[in-house]
């Protein structure tokens, strides 16, 4: 059973590389049951978008990670 601390590791990781099937599954299961971690996941997503507000990416400088 995934604990919150380990869940945050996967939440962070999924923004840097695609998760394996196992990792994705255990994270989804944990998020389904844990409201605090769902908030954390949204906070990480916000931090992930901060750059576009700070310094908008130039045209052609595509960010590769939109769909992860």
């Amino acid at each position: 059973m995934l604990m919150c601390k380990e869940a945050t590791r996967l939440m962070s990781l999924k923004r840097d590389r695609p998760l394996t099937f196992q990792e994705r599954l255990s994270l989804r299961l944990h998020l389904a049951m844990c409201g605090a971690c769902r908030n954390c996941d949204r906070q990480f997503e916000l931090l992930h978008r901060v750059g576009r507000h700070y310094a908008p990416p130039a045209e052609g400088e595509a960010r590769d990670d939109e769909e992860r």
Partner: peptide, 21 residues
């Protein structure tokens, strides 16, 4: 110790991202 959030550190909702930004 068991890997759950400390009560004092549990993440709360920050609201809508666009409003936050």
């Amino acid at each position: 110790r068991n890997g759950r959030w400390q009560e004092s550190a549990r993440p709360s909702s920050w609201g809508e991202p666009e409003a936050t930004f």
